[in-house]
Nucleic acid binder design. Sequence first.
RNA 1: GGGGCUGUAGCUCAGUUGGUUGAGAGUACCUGACUGUCGAUCAGGGGGUCGCGGGUUCGAGUCCCGUCAGCCCCGCCA
Length: 594
Amino acid sequence: MSGQAELPRRSRCCGDFRTEHVGQECCVMGWVHSYRDHGGVIFIDLRDRSGLVQIVADPSTSPGAHAAAERVRSEWVVAAVGRVRPRSAESINPKLATGEVEIITDRIVILTEAETPPFPVDAAEEMDESLRLKWRFIDLRRPQMLDRLRRRHEVVLSARNYLSERGFWEIETPLLINSSPEGARDFLVPSRMNPGHFYALPQSPQLMKQTLMASGVDRYFQMARCLRDEDLRADRQPEHTQIDIEMSFVDEEQVLETVEGLVRHIYRVAKGVDLPDPFPRMTYAEAMLRYGSDKPELRFGLEIIDVSPVVAKSEFRVFTETLANGGQVRGINVKAGACLSRSQLDNLQPTARELGGKGAAYIIYEPDGTWRSPLLKYFPEDVLEELRSLLGGEPGDLFVFGADEPEALAPFMGRLRLHLAGLVGLPGETDDIRPLWVTDFPVFERDSETGGWQAMHHPFTMPKREFLDTMEENPGAVIGQLYDLVINGAELGSGSIRIHDPSIQQRVFRIVGISEEEAERKFSYLLRAFRYGAPPHGGIALGIDRLVSQIVGVKSIREVIAFPKTATGADLMMGAPGPVDDAQLRELHIRPVE
RNA sequence: GGGGCUGUAGCUCAGUUGGUUGAGAGUACCUGACUGUCGAUCAGGGGGUCGCGGGUUCGAGUCCCGUCAGCCCCGCCA
């Protein structure tokens, strides 16, 4: 009877049986993946996380096992005791790793019966994601999903090993901390014992890990949960995990070397590939000019090129007037883009506006060497030729242009580049992995609302030495010791060398408009710690969810998180967030507004 | 806060300009048959608030408005 028989001892996982085990007595346990009842002999494919193995129940030799096998249904949990035997040549199943053997059972123990699952575990087609999330425990049974969990484990384990071997200590920092109003919106946790006071869940352990450096920890890491109450995306969840790293007595170069080594190690262990050594580097300024993004996708070209001097010689008013007003015109050579359909070309204009541009113009260099474009009448032949030369045009290419003031043009061209790449099928199916350090980020940027200066990364970023004397004069020009790790167009990590000198810190706070009282209130313990002797230090945080989703080749980080949330922040399996009792609220001194 | 896409048996989907389909297919499920299958096969059966609400119409799965849910994007995410 279900759940009552004495549990036999499992001898091996289902997927591990091979011809070398033939003749062995064995006991396997798992879920009934499928069964084939031939009236006489019954076959059961038994599944655990290692794979499938075929169990055979023969009524002529084991009527008891056969009777149990007759009752069995999909996803029941059973144990089968028997013996490994080779399959006959005709019945070998090359699709199964265990396909050369099978287990002839003389005893089947039904461990648990199961309701019919809401969707099949071996579903060929993709299910609706909300269904998968509601029944996540079934969804995770799918071999593909278990494999992703395993690979995530391998990423985390390999990171732990690598860092530990290099003297990093894994240290946990609190989840209940104080709120700091700038940056992302905090998740708040009311304090029962302190009416009207709240904890916040950490957006990152930033201040705490820097404090650990002041404590002399020297090298720290943590698999850190980070929580932000902001809107979700395919690559953003309200809680995500970072490999959080901080090192003392190092400069930028040493941090980059360490992190590169770590990331190469992870890819070697979890994906079996060797990444370039060293990673290529590009400054922020160059990335914005050539790729229109601070996270360039390098798996294809389609670089952005300034064509202002050339198109200035055309009579196309949109271009010439933009140039006259201090703007620029930049172009992209979409290799082999002349094959785009008429409707795709017509859609460029509205699409460009959706991407935040003023518009997009195009010129086609036909395979036969002739030109085609609505703009042809404005472009003399020699200007076209000059354009072609500048853009490296070959027959069959498509040139697409945008015009605007430089600050708006760069990000627009970046989005346009990715859109155009998609139209011609780039990057396509490829094993290419293109890591990149983007360095030399500005420390300060204009606040779009107030117009004042704010920290681009965070206010603890150390400006490069050459800007230290003069940073108040032109904050916008100050480059920081700031670096992002980008792989295939995704930002996988971000870090910096931090300010450890209280006087520099004070000046930076002044530039971003944080008063001494405010700084003392928000960052009290860190600033206090630094007054008592802080080492030079820096670090980085790598997003594990993004890293793993890239390693296993999925678009959304939800595919590599066991229990992720929907775009509205709901957990469909557990039904969170949900209402709470009035009594709970009273205890926390909270009353709903309304 | 805004834009786009999707919503029809347990699951994946089809469903023509609104009317012969009193809502279909495959699969899953249930019953029966079958001793070598591995997407088993064969026969039979049960199963639907067409996301929800309102409207237009003689008539709505189909058209209109609203709403809910999921997905993608913008804003947001130091």
